[in-house]
Structure formats: C-alpha cells, structure tokens
Design a protein around this nucleic acid. Sequence first.
DNA 1: ACGGATCAATATCCCCCGGGTATCGATCCG
DNA 2: CGGATCGATACCCGGGGGATATTGATCCGT
Lengths: 280, 280
Amino acid sequence: METRELRYFVAVAEELHFGRAAQRLGMAQPPLSRAIGQLERRLGVALLRRTSRSVTLTEAGEVLLREGGAALDAVAAAERRTRRAQPGGAAGLVLVAKAAAAGELLAKLLDAYAAEPGAVPVDVVLCGVGEQEAMLRDGRADVALLHTPFDSTTGLDVEELHTETQVAVLPAGHPLTTRTRLRIADVDSLPDLPMARWPRRDGSYPPGPGPEIHDQAQLLQLISLGRAVVVLPESVRPYLSEGHAIVPVSDAPEVTTVIAWPPHSTSRALAALVRTATRL
Amino acid sequence: METRELRYFVAVAEELHFGRAAQRLGMAQPPLSRAIGQLERRLGVALLRRTSRSVTLTEAGEVLLREGGAALDAVAAAERRTRRAQPGGAAGLVLVAKAAAAGELLAKLLDAYAAEPGAVPVDVVLCGVGEQEAMLRDGRADVALLHTPFDSTTGLDVEELHTETQVAVLPAGHPLTTRTRLRIADVDSLPDLPMARWPRRDGSYPPGPGPEIHDQAQLLQLISLGRAVVVLPESVRPYLSEGHAIVPVSDAPEVTTVIAWPPHSTSRALAALVRTATRL
DNA sequence: ACGGATCAATATCCCCCGGGTATCGATCCG
DNA sequence: CGGATCGATACCCGGGGGATATTGATCCGT
C-alpha cells in the first residue's frame, strides 16, 4: 500500500464524497474513484458502500481510516525528523506545552536542562488543548508536557513529574469561599455560577449554561466578574489576582504533569532532557 | 514520501550495499540508486555517505532508518488489520505470548473471556522472545502478554495483570538448595553451575560459559542434569519435575505480567478482552 | 605498478500507470 | 418527467519507474 493511496482513501473517508475529496487532493474525481477501486481490489475488502447518492464507510473502511491515519502520521514524522536531522540545521528539540499550563515547572525544566553539559537549544511551542498529541505523532514536536487525566498518553512514552490536587477558583466573596473544602457536586451546578466550558479538540463546545472559554486570561476575568467558576490544578495559584478565591476540591481527580515523547526516539538530547526533568 | 521509497531506503540502509539491497527488493541496482538519490534530493538531506567501495549512514539516514521502519510497520499494520476486517472473515483476535511463559494465566484469561457475552474467537500465537512487540506493531497480532522488565512496552498501551517474584531453579540436591533465600550474586557465577544463556532477539547468544537455550523443555532438562542454573518467575513451578529445586532470589527484580496492545485500537472485542484480563 | 574485480553512478530506452477530459447511468427532487 | 447530482466507465496522454549497457572510481592480488 502506497502512502498516496492512503492519502486518497483518508480524504474520501473523511469527506464521504468523491468530488469534494478530489478537490481537496487537487485532482479530478475519476482517477480518485479508480484509485480507491484498485485499493479495494488489492486489499480484497470493500472499504466504502456507495449508492450513486451517498458514500458510507464499511467496517473495514473504518479500520483503515483509523490505522491509515496513524500510518500517515508516522510517515510524516519520519520525513520531518529526517529533514531536521540535516547537518547544518541546529539539532534542537521542540517541546510543546499547553498555553495555559505548565508555568513554573516548564521554566525550571528549561533552566536546569540548559545548564546540562551538551544541552541543545529547546524550542518551546505553546498550543491548544489536545493538539500536543498530534504534534508528537507526526513529528512536529519531540517532547511534550501533558496533564493526566486530561490528556491522553496512549502510544507515548511517559515519565511522571509532578502530582497536584485541584482547587475550585471562585470569585472573591462568594459564599462557598467560607468553606475549607468542597466536593465536585458543590461547584458542578451552582445556579448563580455556572462551570466554564472548555473547547473540545475539534473547536466545538460541550453544551451547558457556562461561558465558552478561549484562553486563561479570559477565564480568570470572567471568574473575578462573578460569571463563572472552574476547577483547576492548584498550580494555577500564581496567576490569580485579588478578585479570586480558591478552595480545595477533595474529590476532584489528582492532576499529574508528565513529560511524554514518541517511542522510537533514540535522540541523546531528548534522553538528557527527560533525565533532567525526572530529577527536578 | 511514498512507502516504496521508504522500503527502498530501509533495504539499502540495512544492507549498506546497493547491489544486495536491489536483489532483496527484486529489482536492478541502477533504478534503486536513482530512487535513493531522488529521495535525498526531495528531502534536501544526504542519507548515505557513499565511496565507490562502501556505504554508510549519515545522521539523517539513521533517523530515517529508525522512523521509517516504524512508519512501514504502521502501514503494514493498517493493511493487515483492514484485510482482517472483511465481512466474511471471522473477526477474531490474535493474542501473542511467549512460548515458555504465561501458562495458567493465559488459560484462565481465555476461559473467562470466552464466557463473556459477545466474545469473539481468540487465536493464540506463541512466538519467540522479543518478537511479540514487532507482531503488535505491524498488525500481525492484536494483543500480547508481556513480562516486564524483560519485554519492552514502549509505544504500547498496557494494563498490569500480575506481579510475582523470581526463584532460582537448581538441580535437586545442589548445595544451594539448603538455603531459604538467595541473592543474584549467589547464583550468578557458580563455578560448577553456569547461568543458562537465552537467545537475543536477533538469534545470537550473549557470551558466557552457560549452555545456549532453545526452549524451556531443554532448559529444564539441562538443569535437572546439573548443567545449568537459571532464575525465573515463580510461576514456572508447575513445569518443574523431581529433578528440580527452587529457592527464592530476594534481589531479583519482580516480574509483572502485562496485557499490551497497540494504541489506536478501538476494537470492542479487544476492549472486552482487556477488561476481562484486569478483572481476573 | 598494473589489470581485473567490485560497486555505485550515469545514459538510454520502454512501457505502464497515474492523471486528465468526456460521458454514462443511477438516484433524488421539484 | 426533466434537470441536477454524483460515482463509474471509457479513453487518451505524458512522466516516471523499471531494465540494460556502460562508465568511473577504488581495492586487491600478483
């Protein structure tokens, strides 16, 4: 199976429409139809059920969409990492972290690593929630700071760095701030103070009464205005202002910051960075 | 980058010889040379250093060999799993375990899973040490029983099933069998009783005085004959005969049996098998 | 030192296959 | 019932991937 065929199939499987898929691929529709047909014949499996009005995936097609996507990521990663290994190019590392999180820990890690003998430059990329995983898998990044249980670490090698509890961030003066401890149920459905809603990885928002959050600054602003409440890891504390109050939430899951990297990595620089991180 | 190019490069990188690589690929040498050259030009990186007498990998070439191999495995996995998802083919699972190990646990797991509602047939494949990982990665298997710290679980999703200590298996009547506990150093270098040597994953054996082991039956035979000693997980006990004696080894690492599967698996059957396993 | 052997690169040719356009056939809709 | 939509088919063309023949550089044995 050639990556070209995989790209074609993934395009069609995602669009469920040969014409649009062909357009997205920058080609005409007939050769695309033919290519998919050939792929099906070679595999000996029907991938798509087409009536002349609609296209749907078969069981096998769903498998190929999932596995083929991962394979394309792997190929893209191979290509990118190879390009970056050229002699002239400064053999730096790309570290990716969520924009909002990993404040102090990240700074300490970068400082400590820079002091190591043989340290290479580290590019820090801040990105949205749920995107770090994809960046690791397709080679745009070498290593990430993730937070379980929010981020999935499936298929990644991981070292735990730091575990912390979560706290409710409330507007200062809210009645609940007199409590020394809360439970999730206490903050989950306050009639006057809805839970903020984070975007999902596709950019859409879960339903609910709370405001839609774009970034941390906006969130903290909304809280101090008494328009929202949120449960966050306790390391958010340095970012809070006078308008905020925090109360521990005893039954919220603990948040573990982990350093994660794709398997197959034998880079000496990466190993050194991970070792530094675990020693912090 | 097309998988054809990747296959070509991997062949050359492994053989370090264009002629032999071409032979292995079933093609002539000139088009192979040209293809590699084109690949290098497109990537903008030299992958190979060739004098007219020898071929060596550059830094970038080593990266591409490693990452490209993983990518080819991913493509092969996509292809195999798609083929196996065809409607007619019984949608079974392939479980792979080491030939020697996982005796009772495996039987219990298969029994328990077969009793689950909606269980699918499970093909059990027994294979050599170190090969399970490759079989998971390239789609020949869906799930494996592995033993940490012996087997690498990098890049796999894992659930721990069972942890056990290790014991020294000695010939009955050997002086050490009077001890109630041993340390690794005690059995490591007995002048009269060398440690058995297991094959490495490439089939070669580490150097040393001990006999080379091909399978468990041979190993146990050699021990009862007083020609070898070995340290194994305590679950080996049911396989022992009168000619053997076991003594706990207190500082040998604990062996954990884990069930492992490749990420991206969303198979309902696999999820059920894993759930069954963790409940044993 | 020289000639043969080895091995990657170059030159050249050929044909298949991946891409294009035109069209058909089936389904849905007004 | 006719037009619109959409995938499949028929057909053509050009490039690229394959083979063969050869060159050029290096190593080695005498």
